[in-house]
């Protein structure tokens, strides 16, 4: 049925929908198509090659390396930044002095562009003149090469990411905390519940909708945010700190292999879609919404 009402509704949706299709859905479809094609050079016509690109991908050790890196990167940054965000939110939500200053302090990393953050941390992490190693030098310890040592380069990136993300997530938790009625906490206190019990039984469950939202965003960010790699490590040394999206960028614009880059992109899109679906359908049922 295409009634007049429907037509009007579609017309109203049209502007947003055309942008969405032009810049999201159409490129997505083109990317998927491209991942099944190949061409000898930029000028040669591309031809359909089936799953050949995917076979290359399965045999590509760097692909598996960046997947592994991304896994550890997500695991290292997401829970830590969420936990920190909750702690900071609870802190600045309490009745202490100077809460607005604290809130501002916690939020500052968020308002900085990732490139700026990376440049600041580049100064922290530099081997000889860097802040960390100078401080360590004061107490007589020779600091490591934070970004150059293959064993710790990825961890160094994680620390910076947590620093950047926690303040952003804190804002969501703070907003959620302020919608909770203080009566609930008064009631729980009167019933003799300890601070930890109140957090575990009341505060945390009531923050679950926020946690789900933040969790999805944090995981997506773990895949999406790679600006700092351009400044800090460029994925090195020897791909030890390389992440999927940066690898896609390298493949497409440094190695100029847009067909293989499309293949990698499809894998990344599928992974993210799967994560979002699992989170929404599995966690959703266990969360109380008001």
């Amino acid at each position: 049925m295409f009634s007049r009402f429907n037509l009007k509704a579609w017309l109203l949706l049209l502007p947003a929908l055309s942008f969405l299709i032009a810049f999201t859905h159409w490129p997505t479809l083109k990317t998927i198509w491209r991942s099944f094609t190949w061409a000898k050079s930029d000028v040669a016509p591309s031809q359909f090659v089936g799953v050949e690109n995917y076979q290359i991908l399965v045999d590509d050790p760097i692909f598996w390396k960046v997947i592994e890196n991304n896994f550890w990167y997500a695991l290292g940054t997401v829970p830590t930044s969420i936990a920190l965000a909750i702690i900071m939110a609870l802190w600045v939500n309490s009745k202490i002095h100077c809460t607005s200053l604290l809130r501002l302090a916690f939020f500052t990393p968020t308002i900085l562009p990732m490139i700026t953050v990376a440049n600041i941390w580049l100064f922290f992490y530099s081997p000889n003149i860097g802040l960390f190693n100078q401080l360590l030098g004061l107490v007589g310890i020779e600091g490591p090469n934070w970004l150059g040592d293959p064993d710790i380069a990825l961890s160094s990136l994680m620390v910076m990411t947590v620093w950047k993300e926690a303040g952003f997530f804190m804002i969501f938790y703070l907003a959620a905390l302020q919608t909770l009625s203080p009566d609930l906490f008064d009631a729980a206190k009167l019933e003799g519940a300890s601070t930890w019990r109140i957090f575990r039984k009341i505060t945390f469950p009531l923050l679950m909708p926020t946690t789900l939202f933040v969790l999805i965003n944090a995981i997506l960010n773990a895949f999406k945010l790679v600006d700092h790699l351009f400044i800090l490590t460029k994925g090195g040394p020897n791909n030890e700190s390389n992440l999927l999206l940066y690898y896609i960028y390298e493949t497409a614009f440094s190695f100029l292999d847009s067909y293989y880059a499309a293949t990698l992109t499809v894998v990344m899109l599928a992974t993210l879609a799967l994560i979002a679906l699992v989170q929404i359908f599995v966690l959703d049922r266990r969360i109380h919404y008001r």
Binding site: D183, A187, A188, L190, E191, G192, A193, S194
Partner: peptide, 30 residues
Amino acid sequence: GERKLAMVFQSYALFPHLKVEENIIFGLQA
């Protein structure tokens, strides 16, 4: 908590994510 008093709030202050039963025995568990 140490005073061991009971209180009924104007807003009821029921825990929205807990079942009625869990709400009632919240203090006993604590």
